[in-house]
Design a protein around this nucleic acid. Structure first.
Lengths: 162, 162
DNA sequence: CCGTATCCACAACGATACTG
DNA sequence: CAGTATCGTTGTGGATACGG
């Protein structure tokens, strides 16, 4: 009951805000699949090579190849050729800025899984390197208030629709 | 380069932390589909009835029914019969606590979509009801430091693996 | 209003085998 | 090591029609 978002302004229930232009839907169009998120997880964990992605994310080669290509096409990963002395040229995949900013999504998912799907507690933990304290994904307003349930309002922006 | 998570301790690249017990993977097993997230979005926006979910999320009836059933089975939504005076009994779907805690995931997705996929700026905005300031999903440590790129360490917890 | 039944199309994924 | 080609299976979702 308290978990709802309160709407302000003239927001009709089935206007363009809900599905067409909704950023959630658009984001899901880009990272709709499980494999894409798992590959991203491994990118954050430091994977850069084809093999690492396939093995660590436990994906078959074809799926790994498809997903890597799509993620590169979407500007989330970038290929970079490199060459170690004496070796032939290889490719590595690295997160772009656009890709790196998906981290809060991953962390929020992990945190929810930790809380609701793990019987024996979280298998791994993210900590702040500087101070060692545990990291969480949370909602804050620009005045730095923590956002509790039911404290959210939804407003149509003036920028919307040209 | 700075977007990686630094690993500490004896974390082998392909151990159980990566895929099997990983909370990201487990969470994705529950909310793997686009339709599930869109229905959740509408639940946060206040939808409670079958029709609202189908129309607002722009999903066909069968998919809506499937997804609602699964979300109820997974404890993310709960059905509740209610009866308005003079009407027959109806069902409503409401977020459980488990479901409500997926909000950071949705907000993080929305925020990313706003930033990277919207040309004309965000179509809607979330604001803090108490103070009116805009809301973001962000990473914080327990000592309330904001987490910048590359400031994250990953450690295996002592609780993992019985 | 709240769904179910049926059918169909396409996407996602694994397994296996093969190439530079 | 870094993929591609092919095949088969299941998942996801729309369209349509129907029932309590």
């Amino acid at each position: 009951m308290t978990s709802e978002i309160h709407m302000t302004g003239a927001l009709e229930p089935r206007g363009s805000w809900t599905a067409d232009r909704c950023s959630v839907a658009k984001a899901l169009d880009v990272v709709r699949t499980r494999s894409a998120l798992l590959i991203l997880r491994e990118a954050f964990y430091g994977a850069t090579r084809f093999d690492e992605f396939a093995k660590r994310a436990q994906l078959s080669d074809p799926v790994t190849a498809d997903r890597l290509r799509e993620l590169v096409d979407d500007g989330i990963l970038e290929r970079e050729p490199y060459r170690e002395p004496g070796q032939r040229t290889r490719q590595m995949y690295r997160l772009t800025e656009k890709g790196a900013e998906l981290l809060p999504v991953l962390v929020a998912l992990m945190q929810w899984g930790d809380r609701w799907l793990q019987d024996a507690g979280p298998p791994v933990q993210l900590t702040h390197e500087d101070c060692g304290a545990r990291i969480t994904a949370q909602l804050r307003c620009e005045r730095d208030h923590e956002i509790g349930e039911g404290e959210i309002a939804l407003a149509r922006t003036s920028l919307a629709r040209t």
